[in-house]
Design a protein around this nucleic acid. Sequence first.
DNA 1: AAGATATGTGGCAACGTTTGCAGAAACAAC
DNA 2: GTTGTTTCTGCAAACGTTGCCACATATCTT
Lengths: 352, 352
Amino acid sequence: MANTIVDVAKRAGASPSTVSRVLNRKGYVSEEMREKVERAALELGYQPNWQARALKGKASGLVGLIIPDISNTYYTAVAQGVAGRLRAHDYEPVLCVNNEDPVVDLHYLQILQQKRVDGILYAHPAAGSNWQMVEAMVRGGMPIVEINRQHAPDLLDAVVADNYLGAYQMTEHLLALGHTRIGLVLGETQLITGNRRLAGYRRAHEDAGVRVDPCLVRVGSFIRQHGETATRELLSLPERPTALFAGSNRILMGCLAVISELDISIPGELSIGSFDNTEWMSAWRPPITAVDIAIDELSRLAVDLLLRRIAEGDACKPVTYTLSTSLIRRASTAAPPEKVERVPAALRHGRS
Amino acid sequence: MANTIVDVAKRAGASPSTVSRVLNRKGYVSEEMREKVERAALELGYQPNWQARALKGKASGLVGLIIPDISNTYYTAVAQGVAGRLRAHDYEPVLCVNNEDPVVDLHYLQILQQKRVDGILYAHPAAGSNWQMVEAMVRGGMPIVEINRQHAPDLLDAVVADNYLGAYQMTEHLLALGHTRIGLVLGETQLITGNRRLAGYRRAHEDAGVRVDPCLVRVGSFIRQHGETATRELLSLPERPTALFAGSNRILMGCLAVISELDISIPGELSIGSFDNTEWMSAWRPPITAVDIAIDELSRLAVDLLLRRIAEGDACKPVTYTLSTSLIRRASTAAPPEKVERVPAALRHGRS
DNA sequence: AAGATATGTGGCAACGTTTGCAGAAACAAC
DNA sequence: GTTGTTTCTGCAAACGTTGCCACATATCTT
């Protein structure tokens, strides 16, 4: 079927070793022989077998990319960035989508070890992962870099966004506009993303001297469904929030569907902001204010970190890169409609 | 570093051959020995080396997935479906994003051959591919299935959507609502997707006895940018279209951004429909009428076809599966504002 | 009792590559 | 003419599997 190095050697009238030396530009080879071999390889359309090469202890040229959900535009962007950056270093990603399922996740960890990938970019499932397995793999010398989600900073390198900062920026922005009842629709707080975003939201309130009404914080999952139910609940509260902060693009989609259904005007009746600045948000009507994570940068850093780990081994301590976020202000956030909630009634009526 | 079959054999007091037999459940092994080996394998956390296995002529368990753009929700969905289906058969995809670039594409074809993947799911770049290379690979026994895009039906298996039908359905729907000036914003017509969609649009007009004004058909690329410029042009036409048919989700995004900017009401002033029913379209305000392609089904078929090809070789002729489409009617399409176009100018001036 | 069959195990070669080693040829220095 | 250095090439041994073959038992037929 496919040609081997021996076929090339025969055609060029050389030995396999010589062919190998030519192809890898290593050791002494006469100019004449080099030409003959190169011609033969070209004529036969020879493609070296990486499996055999990897068996001799060389790199496999494969990197595992484990993500929870590829239909999420966030991870889509990650995959895009990672794939591009890997290609520049002659690596390709093996795509593993665990669907937030720890069982599937474990399966993939095993498979990737069996396929002898050179390293793994890892976003663990929300429900948690098989950390013993991960630890065993790391001890066994498998480079693993956590991406976006982080669980074991003292065991693994990680590249994450500054979720705390992002949430703080958005909350601060909404507070500055005059909102004091800001509904927060968030995913799992056992995830670093959920955890830090909640902290940022709270801290911004503290710093502004505004008390957070616990009713306004809706913790659930980072999925559309949660966005829908939480929004429905928040909007039927006796004291409605005047602004909504969606914890992810998925959640935002759910929020918007409900808001659209109830025919509530944005930002007239309700301001809305979201984490994850994705493409469609700028085309929305009105365009959605969002916390932007430089995903390209994040992917680039993660790949570079992983490749360094692959090259250098586990000599140095695990490091964590935290990427700054920025707030993209768009038309979906404006001053609250009429009055600020949770202040004495007398004052409330004074405002326009 | 990682344990080998020899380590397991030593610990179990058996020979490597016996261990192999246990692990592959092949040939005779005593119950007692099986247990000992299994225990040893478990204790050592042994993971078989697929590279060595593949070298012996077994499947590598890898399938190449070449797509033009992973940030496109359409291909995202394809990747999602493919990954899920592959997993069920113990295969993983090697993700290759060619960015519509034939050079990158060629690089990936070579790499995948070097990595000795068992087969390839292939969506070629819009600008065309290196078909000699593809043909050589197929002749060399590499199973390749075209997905979504099709170029060589007599050489490769393919799974595509019925683009003609989809475009026909949408156009028919708009015509039935009373529109006679339907702007079509389309991507490359050298792609089967562009080609067939244009044909469907035309045929629906013919069948309804409506002449197509050539000004209304804007062929460009399947990207947001084209959606924006084409929409701007169409809306500044002396005889504005009353409906817009976006040729893809990307294009739609561009159309919507411009429509939103110009503050044109949907469907009051302009009806809008699109190819590719993606998640955010249902959350849009108003929800967007779209041609739905059962991408899950498409991916499933493609994977199954590829696996069959891998198992059976190129005994049978290439086949093409064409998947039916369905029209999802939503609020973005309604009757035209007032009067049907293509009527005497006198009437036209009567419009508000 | 002698064969025939079923069951269990290890040895060894191969898959396609890389690499250390050894040998050969060319050239220079004494 | 001997010795040394540099340049070139091939042999053979690995890498971790698998599968054929041979051998060793045990069980069943005649």
